[in-house]
Design a protein around this nucleic acid. Sequence first.
DNA 1: CATAAGACTTGCAGATACACGT
DNA 2: ACGTGTATCTGCAAGTCTTATG
Length: 898
Amino acid sequence: MAVQTSGRSVYDDDFDEEDGPTVFKRSKPTAKQNPLNSEVNKLSSQRRDGQSGRQVSGIPSSNGQNLSSQKGKMVTSNKASPVKSPAASPKASTSSVKASPEKSPVANSRKLSMSDGHAKHSSEQKLSRSIKEEMYSAENNDSEDSEDDKPLSARLKGNSNPAHKGIGKPIPTTSLPTVSKNAAKKYSEDSDDEVPLSSRFPFKSNVGTPNSKSYESEEKKPLASKIQQNGSTLRDKQHKSSMVIGKRPLDTANSSDQSSVKKTKLSDTSTTVKIKQVSVKAELKTDDDDDHIPIAQRIKKPSASGNKSSSTKQKPVKVASSSFKKTTQKSKKAVKNSKYIKSTKMSPSAGDGQKKWTTLVHNGVIFPPPYKPHGVKMRYSGKPVDLNPDQEEVATMFAVMKDTDYMQKDKFKENFWTDWRKLLGKNHVIQSLEKCDFTPIYDWCQQEKEKKKQMSTEEKKAVKEEKLNQEEKYMWAIVDGVKEKVGNFRVEPPGLFRGRGEHPKMGKLKKRIRPRDITINIGKDAPIPECPIPGESWKEVRHDNTVTWLAFWNDPINPKEFKYVFLAASSTLKGQSDKEKYEKARMLKDYIENIRAAYTKNFTSKDVMKRQIAVATYLIDKLALRAGNEKDDDEADTVGCCTLKVENVKAVAPNTLEFNFLGKDSIRYENKVEVELPVYKAIIQFQAGKKGSDDLFDQLDTSKLNAHLKELMPGLTAKVFRTYNASITLDEMLNIETKDGDVAEKIVVYQHANKEVAIICNHQRSVSKSHSQQMSRLNEKISELQGLLKELKTDLDRAKKGKPPLKNADGKRRNLAPEAIEKKIAQTNTKIEKMVRDMKTKEDLKTVALGTSKINYLDPRITVAWCKRHEVPIEKIFNKSLLAKFAWAMDVDPDFRF
DNA sequence: CATAAGACTTGCAGATACACGT
DNA sequence: ACGTGTATCTGCAAGTCTTATG
């Protein structure tokens, strides 16, 4: 890759040297907006949001305080199905393409979800897409290295008008003719393959059909979104209106720190000492030899091969002999895979085997302070009891949980009692938990908390500084000569296990971790961190550079499992794999059409397992379900796709499926979806003759499913669909809904898209304790304003007639000119409208968590590119930690599309 | 092959920091 | 200056997926 030598990108400059928000300016102020947008916008006005109440009463699903009661109030049952999909109206592209004669059963089955009749993509597009598929690896290299890593300034000079790129690369996903340069390039360069297309893609002809019109446009979204279009069942809680989410602009003060995203390359690992001396902030800003080099390139430095990015680190995928190939894309796959292998071989990671780093220096982990007995006596049968420090410690853990929901759970108390009793001993005075009164300890803890709160600012600051001082040395590691933040260097303190949902182990004592429990992983030549507790030593010291963890210990609750210390999300190591994740999801984009066609075909396969795989894949794709691994009995009883029980899905004629189950973290997934008839029928078949608690997919588990997926695309697994659907949704929504307007309006568009994704992924949060209170407070304010409005109107009437204003209860009003009153009225109206909007937004988002998708599912390059295109300061969308985490994405081409 | 072990990502909640209106 | 509400950060639980093992 051409290393960018000429200096920083525009972005970098802003980042480093300015305090103000970073605005991605285009060199040409023109072409800010895709010309198509205006048309597309119409579509957007038809969209409705899903509604958000997804939790169900009575389900003890979380451990938050008062949660169950809150949840209980939420009656709404259908979960939203989000996005409808204006997003993909391929009209534009259609025009450039001729209709193809393909016909496909698949397409037919999709009609259902395509009520708005989007045009489909032409066969030509499909073909070129297929070609692209084969060339994936080549493309990757191109896109990652040749373009993205160029300085922004350089890139901007080029063709910044998205419309220019239309040639050559069909983006099936959207109708926008926008095509990335990379893709176009790839297309032409990649035509190397001599094999006739027709033979390479026997499957093709099946895929698109005349009636697949909206198939393509629609297919990119989870079904849920589509269904909503006709979804009579769904509540229309929406507000296409863009609501102001009330997000505060990040303060510019932050930006000065942002250079933290840069890595400081140290000339050699022995510089550790120096590092330790510098304060964090100072360090962040210090000399950075590599500052001018984009992170993406720096990442690769350590690798001797200096090769182009390997967007996928996985090892070559074996070309399995699968039935799928036979039926569909045999030759294609073979070709693909071989290329894939080739490219992977050249990649640094492949060359180094599993090697994740070359040198690794760090200072180990920090332990929580030993327990300080407070001596406060709890009571047993009303009498004070003496406890030794160990017993007291555990009693205190229990005491402080007084007003959490766990206290209502018998399992929690039972588990706690079992473990505490072991400490007390059989013959202790305390013989039963019921007679225990922990309130003295509880009260004491509250007092302590209060004391802390009352400390003066200076005192607090001092305490903080002291803590920082102690921790500083643990906060950093040096990986291949680059100083990187460590994620969780603090060893977990002892406590009572707070499992989520109905976890069988809740309340058990999580014992204190000691050095002898901990295995350290560190570079061979690095000094071994000294054990912070005198007289003890680490369990083991390894030098394993095929893994990224710095330390681990066995989870005291489940000794078969481990707790790892990793680098922070902002590290290059994490950034790299994050990028690979998104590249894989982008790769899926090129395969998705065939994959969907294949599973659609298999809805009616005679082979039950195939049918189950098909339907499961469909659900994962359309509803963004998780894979659903098997779980042990000593874990909360939750499910994912492969572990769905018969009772979790209800088939309602003619073709609706009602899902209701507890997913990850015991979050309820509740959704009604209209599905293709074959899916509906298949589900009924799978349920036939089974009990409610039986597995719906009895022939299936995640390894079978993923093994199958891997035959369809290298590295494909179930979770890739979630990433793909989340990111593609964001990309499309942003590009369709962004209009000219001020930054605030654009941010609203972003948040709206973000929200849709969160709903698709079922990312929930519990309603804040004060939510209803806050709502009524807002209501009060609104009616106050409305009262004022009334008075103003009266005044206006009187003023027009030349009469003086009436006096009201609390005094008199000023005598104003009618114009002034009118102005006031307008202002008040605006204020009221804004408050109403805000309230709606607040109500709407009260159970939706936007953060998770932003952190884990949305390709940051979509966001960064959009910010560049629309001159939205990236800080308005990404906070400081996100900026650091996504450093690798910052110099993306403004024309980047997912 | 099935299962276990191992490694890494994803997810929610509570604590804490911070901005905003009064 | 202060309380309140929101945004962000942190902690750690709970997933996914790969690899090793018998």
